[in-house]
Amino acid sequence: MTGLLRGELIKLRTTRTAIGFALCALVLMLLALMLGLLVSEPATTQEKLAAVSIAGPIVFVLAIFGAVGATGEHRHGTITAALLIAPGRVRVTVSKLLAYAAAGALAGAALQVVALAIGLPLMLSNAGDDPGAADLVGLLAGAMAGCALLAAFGVALGSLVRSQVGTVVGLLVYLFIAEPLLGLAWHGFDVAGLSAATNALTGTEQSAELRPVAAGFVLLGWTVVAGAAAVLADRARDVD
């Protein structure tokens, strides 16, 4: 398993895909941060934390990153090369999930540190209490966990769907159209949907119904369900 994980990490490091997605997330984060600080004046500790937290759409870039990584294996046929070397499909899928989770956590940490480094000094003159060290550690942990879980979810979904365009378009349609509509029909999606759980975990929104740790478990559940579905589907599917 360690070898498979190392192999996946080598794959991650040796194309420009990861750097491209990291830059995309960085630009989105900077835009969201500047826009947030320009149009509002956070006064409470919670408002200040929300202003410097990594917002949902930025974390969703990591989900797309994971989806592109997993579907790229089928698109380029590299999954075949991997399975010829290591035929255990479950182990290959799990190692990819773990590798992308690790990359997501790293990206989340980097993005959150940059957001704090830029955002906190700009809010020094604002009224109200500043966030304490525990708040900042919690924010950083939430960002890392959120990015890790969303990247892994993207891998799980990509492994299930296999089609790159289908997965990415489907994910975007679900996140920005379907889930808000489902939330209107059933409150559960407003609380434990991907967007709501991600925002609760990263500190963008404080939800009374879903604490950050619980939100982490909800996202983990989404990932495990998608991953299990991918593994089960693979039992009956051939690889080209």
Partner: peptide
């Protein structure tokens, strides 16, 4: 196999290095 492909943005050496790691 013909279908076993390569990521176009990865070098041949890196492709093999990743497979080496996977194979131990």
């Amino acid at each position: 196999l013909e279908r076993a492909g390569f990521h176009p943005g990865r070098s041949g050496r890196d492709h093999l290095r990743s497979l080496c790691a996977m194979a131990g």
